[in-house]
Design a protein around this nucleic acid. Structure first.
Length: 571
RNA sequence: CGGGGCGUGGCGCAGCCUGGUUAGCGUGCCUGCCUUGGGAGCAGGAGGUCGGAGGUUCGAAUCCUCUCGCCCCGACCA
């Protein structure tokens, strides 16, 4: 491919609409262009990168025994009514009517369709296990699309679905996908972690997210510095930190005029937030529930929802009026003693001794409170966010918090959809049995954004070679010099003959322009044919990743380039 | 959905508050000369009707109303 003929509209300046680095660079490097909020056209380089990721995904899915199919994007409401999700899914499901006034939607995911395919075509346990996947554009009508390819309304996704006869079989399928996902992201050249994830209302402990580590990630994950434990904040737990041998002291009521916030109360009482228990009121499906938490801890609402056995959409903080209506006390002075509503105590509270709490009376707090003696919560549970420095529950190591971008999620579904859609098969005793399912997603377009978030410098993108649009960019620095031009073309042709993907920058531009664009678009190897060739017959090969330059004679350069490319692809 | 910001040649911006002849700057684009190892220089040129609609006015990019679109924050922290 010749640069002069490719549509690579690079920009000198950051477009005003872009905030995060991957979005800016994808636009500046001419990889994508926006059509409307959250939808993008992939230009030649952008699409080439997408295809690279797709092919790695495809190879590893096939290797893991999955079969590629392609399902319709437009789906009938009737299927979604069968699963119950026509009601449940909410506004992200883009709905419309076709010409016959049939309710339809654009597929945000394909559990319904795949389950229908399997229930009508798989009729024996002998056909199991089965794993089917597709790579396709998904549509989710996001409340707030943002950050370019990071969170679009339209995005390219690989979604796989496994069907097993037994729970044990489903776990094996899950494990195979776990391995495949590790291979995929390793081959993409990304630094990532598989983390335990919240599995939500569907239940089960089988859910892992694959997080590309990058400061700009939207998710926070906890990682043990000593063992393999890693979890999304929504799931992460740790060893209870508080411990004290102190003997319980007498309760002491103390006036704390105007002190409502944890910090103000602690300063006034000359204690640390770790010696105070705060009482938060949540509305759980319109019922007030008190949550007791150490003063310096924060509620993890997903964990709280799980402890309460409800969806995290069913809980929210109460407002001041609701707090007063529920407790008769203005917020800021609440405490567990004598509190008449349902109360959840965090595990940490159970371990604390002689802590301060609100007195359930304006301008008063109570010292030396102890759980069990002074109050008994309706329930205890792990409802707090872990913090950096907490101890790992597996090995006692120290947890660190870091940011990640979720690029993959594997999930054991169980029989939720197969039961709802009556997808069953006869087992070896002719009992109709629902398939045990798993689903496994990879955000292909998001992988590209995440790769850039993780791999860039001030000059542009630094693609891991396996997902770069091409591996080599040859710069012809002087089109008028016949020797240079002919050498550049010879290298170009020889590389193509050897199956190396290469772009020849044959534009009538000054060298500076070509160097800048080369850095911007992030091709792993830049081959420069210029002055040093016409003078000394020397070709330069520069690695985008580390900036190292090797100089080599024209005769040896093709072999050297191929060697470099091959090394870079075997990460 | 709540809050904030922004829509002016391809891109980045100024002008608007305090309405007034042909709407400006940088960059990009085209032509020519010149230059050629990190986004050169000079000269000439094309390209916008100021997101859209309505209104106020002798006169609107500028003021008012409505509307469409885009971006950011939030939709957890007593």
């Amino acid at each position: 491919m010749r640069f002069s003929q490719l549509l690579i509209p690079t920009l000198k300046e950051d477009p005003a609409e872009a905030e995060v680095i991957s979005h800016k660079l994808l636009l500046r490097a001419g990889f994508i262009r926006k059509l409307t909020s959250g939808t993008y056209t992939y230009l030649p380089l952008g699409l080439a990168t997408i295809r690279k990721v797709e092919n790695i995904v495809r190879e590893e899915m096939n290797r893991a025994g999955a079969q590629e199919i392609l399902m319709p994007m437009v789906q009938p409401a009737s299927l979604w009514e069968e699963s119950g999700r026509w009601q449940e899914y909410g506004k992200e499901l883009l709905r419309f009517k076709d010409r016959n006034q049939r309710d339809s939607c654009l597929g945000p995911t394909h559990e319904e369709v795949i389950t229908d395919v399997v229930r009508t075509n798989v009729h024996s346990y002998k056909q199991l296990p089965l794993n089917l996947y597709q790579i396709q554009t998904k549509y989710r009508d996001e409340a707030r699309p943002r950050f370019g390819l990071m969170r679009g309304r339209e995005f390219i996704m690989k979604d796989a679905y496994s069907f097993d006869a037994t729970d044990k079989g489903a776990e094996e399928s899950y494990h195979r996908m776990d391995l495949a996902y590790h291979r995929i992201f390793e081959r993409c050249g990304l630094r990532f972690r598989a983390v335990e994830a919240d599995s939500g209302a569907i239940g089960g402990s089988f859910s892992h997210e694959f997080m590309v580590l990058a400061d700009t990630g939207e998710d926070t994950i906890a990682i043990c510095n000593n063992c393999q434990y890693a979890a999304n904040m929504e799931k992460a737990s740790c060893v209870v930190a508080s411990s004290s041998d102190a003997a319980p002291l007498e309760l002491e009521r103390i006036e704390t005029p105007g002190k409502r916030k944890v910090n103000a109360v602690c300063e006034f009482l000359d204690i640390t937030p770790a010696q105070l228990v705060k009482t938060l009121i949540y509305m759980v499906k319109d019922e007030p529930v008190a949550v007791l938490l150490r003063g310096d801890h924060e509620v993890e609402e997903v964990k709280l929802a799980n402890v309460l056995g409800v969806s995290d959409e069913d809980i929210r903080m109460a407002d001041d009026k609701e707090v007063f209506d529920a407790t008769g006390t203005p917020s800021g002075y609440l405490g567990p003693i004598g509190l008449a509503i349902k109360t959840i105590a965090d595990l940490e509270v159970e371990a604390m001794v002689n802590f301060a709490v609100g007195a359930n009376e304006k301008n008063f707090h109570v010292l030396n409170c102890n759980m069990g003696r002074d109050f008994s919560p309706s329930q205890t549970g792990d409802v707090r966010k872990v913090t950096a420095g907490d101890k790992c529950k597996l090995c006692g190591g120290t947890l660190e918090l870091t940011k990640g971008i979720e690029v993959g999620h594997i999930f054991k579904l169980g029989t939720k959809y197969s039961t709802a859609l009556q997808a069953t098969f006869p087992d070896d005793h002719s009992h109709e049995t629902p398939f045990v399912m798993g689903c496994y997603g990879i955000g292909v377009s998001r992988v590209v954004a995440a790769a850039i978030e993780q791999n860039h410098d001030k000059d542009g993108i630094i693609f891991p070679a396996p997902i770069a649009p091409v591996q080599v960019l040859i710069l012809n620095l002087d089109l008028k010099d016949e020797g240079i031009t002919s050498a550049a073309q010879t290298i170009y042709k020889k590389l193509q003959e050897k199956g190396i993907e290469v772009i020849l920058d044959d534009r009538d531009e000054r060298p500076g322009v070509k160097f800048k664009d080369a850095d911007l678009i992030g091709i792993p190897f830049r081959v420069t044919v210029g002055k040093s060739f016409s003078k000394d017959g020397i070709i330069e090969i520069r690695s985008r990743a580390d900036g190292n330059v090797s100089t080599i004679t024209f005769d040896d350069c093709v072999e050297e380039i191929i060697k470099n490319v091959q090394n870079s692809m075997n990460l």
